[in-house]
Write a protein that binds this DNA or RNA. Sequence first.
DNA 1: TCTCGAAATATGTATATACACTTATATGGG
DNA 2: CCCATATAAGTGTATATACATATTTCGAGA
Lengths: 156, 156
Amino acid sequence: MADDPKFTMLDDARCKAIGRSCACYNLRRAARATTRLYDEMLKPSGLRATQFSVLVAAKLRGPVTVAKLAELTVTERTTLTRNLTVLKNKGLIRIEPGSDRREHLVSITEAGVEALMAAEPLWEKAQAHIANGLGENRLGGVLKDLSEIISLTRTT
Amino acid sequence: MADDPKFTMLDDARCKAIGRSCACYNLRRAARATTRLYDEMLKPSGLRATQFSVLVAAKLRGPVTVAKLAELTVTERTTLTRNLTVLKNKGLIRIEPGSDRREHLVSITEAGVEALMAAEPLWEKAQAHIANGLGENRLGGVLKDLSEIISLTRTT
DNA sequence: TCTCGAAATATGTATATACACTTATATGGG
DNA sequence: CCCATATAAGTGTATATACATATTTCGAGA
């Protein structure tokens, strides 16, 4: 019975292995650190990283229904609704009823395009930091773990 | 002037390139999808994915100060405070004053260990789904983009 | 001893996320 | 035409995240 795996299931070595290998934890950790970097660098534009992404999608696909935009960005529809409310209050997107009046069509406004143009060079800088590993200190050394994540999350 | 990159900065091709390559967007998207999968599979244990991760860290490192635990998990200290409040209200962790009474020491409770033991096989299943690509449908096809993420976020 | 600055943590506010449920609208069958 | 059902979106509630600020406690001089 001393060798029954149940008795070692949660010893320190097992907990360490879980912490190191968990795809969800590693992804969330990397996303937190990366978002902090992008948010800080995007600050002069007044946009958060998430808002920048939604605006890009809205510019590309709009006018588009909320459900379609949620599907395209792999976001819960109700989450996108809240995110869109923030952007609408900032005047960066417009939400209008469609010909089917159940549908609400999302499109970017002129102010939204201007915000994107202001943010684009800042985004370039943040992206370059990541690509060049310059953000490593700020990212708390999480980047080196990403190769492990990818090995766990690869489909092929 | 027609060739000035400023005039093509935000055309559709540029927006598409931004959306495809943005490390922050791709990481957040993958984290959202992965978290939904883990949360659903962990549901019988009563733990969310984030709570599971914090509990594992608390079991490994506790008793530990809030600041130290935040550093270990690359979480904002104030974020961890809120997350710990939830776990404390569930009775899964204990928070006690240290000898330096500014410090609050976090440790896992007996109930916390039991929750972890209940969650562990469920976590195994979620992890296996990711590792085997079985979660691909649920993940909305985001996994195939992770190799691009890793190429952007690799430090070496 | 008495401050004053530093350190550890919590709180105020805002955004992001998602499940369960509700509301509004369209549509097909009677 | 009316209703049952399906579809699109919003709302209630809870957790997760983080910046700015406040609170509590410690410790090092004057």
